[in-house]
Structure formats: structure tokens, C-alpha cells
Design a protein around this nucleic acid. Structure first.
Lengths: 145, 145
DNA sequence: AATGGGAACTAGACTTTGTCTAACCCCCTG
DNA sequence: CAGGGGGTTAGACAAAGTCTAGTTCCCATT
């Protein structure tokens, strides 16, 4: 179920283009983190990224991983997903979509937005805007009440 | 905007009835926590509850607050709301509803479910069921791009 | 070539939220 | 009155994330 460690990589140039599109200066560490995250559409935690990078013997500190993920999230390069109040995940799927969370396994699945529709939003003052709508569908093993 | 400290209380008997309905043994501490939470529809964190209780000079330990909130959430007496991955909130509004989160102030508002509609859910194997659908609408001050 | 400044990185200390553990208390039952 | 179990407690602990002070690197200016 877990992804084999032979993840298809994106090139440095592709990573650089992604950062450039979001106005992010392309440093060594940011490129490494971007290449890892965007190797495929996935949901990774800071911890996982840190572990994977040191496994790849890339030199990156914890602080930089956190700083970089926050930077990526602020600029909209990745999406921060809050599911489990103990950990943040970063989603490299740029398309609008929702999430299906398996409470027993901790797995997180993307759900096409067409399957879930938000019919209307409450009125807001002009001074405020909707930053995002997060839909999380929690599923688990069926209860045999 | 913050609620005055003169919160209307519910009686011990009402609290006791709530616990009984969910099969929870009515101890002193659980009753106090329930009376606080159900004084009105609101979203409180463990920290806030602990602070308010000690302000009321009720004797409750941190461990008991956490244990009790987990117990309440497991039995469905309150709803755990995950918004801010740094803190859990417990929602005493028993009716199905969604949430509006103000990213700047940290305020959390209820949204009537009629305003948001879930059109369809992805197919699931018979062995699994949907435990809940959480919709969080994040709003903040309008960007002047 | 030397100087100065700014952005980014690092290690490690620190903070915060929540969990765990061991002892204790209280009530009920036999 | 002994034993047992559920509940509570204080405080130690764990995990995730933030902060700080110092360093490095690059680049522009002299």
C-alpha cells in the first residue's frame, strides 16, 4: 500500500519552474523539497519529508523543512490539509478537490470535487473573502451496532 | 464579541440527563464540564475549559478534562472540531452543521447545513461507512491584490 | 580584492498540546 | 472489614512545531 521508494522524480528544472511561478527563490533545499512533494500527487507531513530527505542524504534542517512548507502553503504552491489535529499534511495536488480520510488507517484520499457540491455560502461582508472550503469525509469500518 | 462571564448555566439535573442519555456515569467533574460546555452552543478547547473551571474554583485536573472530553466525543455527546491543527475544539451544538473559520481572529462560527449541500459521496465498500462529513469554510480579510 | 548587507540555513533550545503512569480515593459488594 | 474497580490527580513524558542566535553564501559597491 505504501509507495515504493523508487518514486519518479521531477527534474530540477521543473521544480524551478514551479517555484518561479509562485515567486519563490529557488534554493537548493526548496528545490529538493519541491521535487519530493511533486514527484506525484500526495499528502506528506513535515516529518515524512524530513525523513525522506535525510534518507536521500540531502542536507536539510528541521527548521528549513517547516519554513519551506509554510512558504509553499502561503504562496499556494501546496495546500495544507488539516485532518488529524496532531499533524499537518501538505497536498501537492493543485486541482480543487476534497478529501476522504480513513480513520482506522490514517490514509488520506483525494475526492473529485464533482462528487461533492457546495450549494451556497453564507453572506459575508465585502471586507472579507472566502479563502477556501475544506471538505473532509471521514470513513471507517462499519459498526455492527 | 466575547461572551460575558455571566453565562447562563444549565442545572445539574439537566447535565445529568445529558450524560445519562449517552451512557456516561455522572461524576462531579463530568457534570461540571458538561454544565460549562452546554451553557450555550459554543466551541471550547480543553485549555479554555480548564481555565474556566479553575476560575470557578472547581477542582479538576488536566488529565480529567482531556479524558472527559475524549469520552464525550466518543459517545457523541459533543463533536470534536479539527480546524487548526494546533488545538482541538469541542462543539456543544448537537445539530448537524458546518463551520466558518475566521483565519485572522481564530473565531469559529456555525453555519446552517442548508446553506451547504453535499450532493453525493463516492461509493464505498459495504464494509465501511461514512462517520461524518466536516465542512470548514475559511474566511479572512479581503486581499487587495 | 575588500567590505557590507541581506536572504537563507542550521542546531538546538523552547513551547504547547495532549497522553501516560503510578498512586490514591471512594464506594460498593461479599 | 477486606477487596476491587472506576475515577481522579500530579507530574513526568512525548510529539509537533516555533524561535533564536550564529553562520554561510551571494551579490553589489567601493
Amino acid at each position: 500500500m505504501t509507495v515504493p521508494s523508487i518514486t519518479e522524480q521531477i527534474t530540477r528544472e521543473q521544480a524551478q519552474a514551479l517555484l518561479a511561478r509562485h515567486g519563490i527563490a529557488p534554493t537548493e533545499q526548496r528545490l529538493e523539497i519541491a521535487r519530493l512533494l511533486f514527484a506525484q500527487h500526495q499528502h506528506l507531513s513535515a516529518e515524512q519529508i524530513l525523513a525522506q530527505l535525510s534518507r536521500n542524504s540531502a542536507r536539510v534542517s528541521k527548521a528549513t523543512v517547516y519554513n519551506t512548507l509554510n512558504l509553499f502553503a502561503e504562496t499556494g504552491l501546496v495546500r495544507e490539509v488539516v485532518i488529524d489535529s496532531a499533524k499537518r499534511f501538505y497536498d501537492s495536488n493543485p486541482d480543487p478537490h476534497h478529501h476522504l480520510f480513513h480513520t482506522d488507517t490514517g490514509e488520506l484520499e483525494d475526492v473529485a470535487p464533482a462528487q461533492v457540491q457546495i450549494a451556497g455560502l453564507p453572506g459575508l461582508p465585502d471586507s472579507r473573502e472566502v479563502l477556501g472550503v475544506d471538505v473532509v469525509i471521514r470513513v471507517g469500518p462499519r459498526h455492527t451496532d
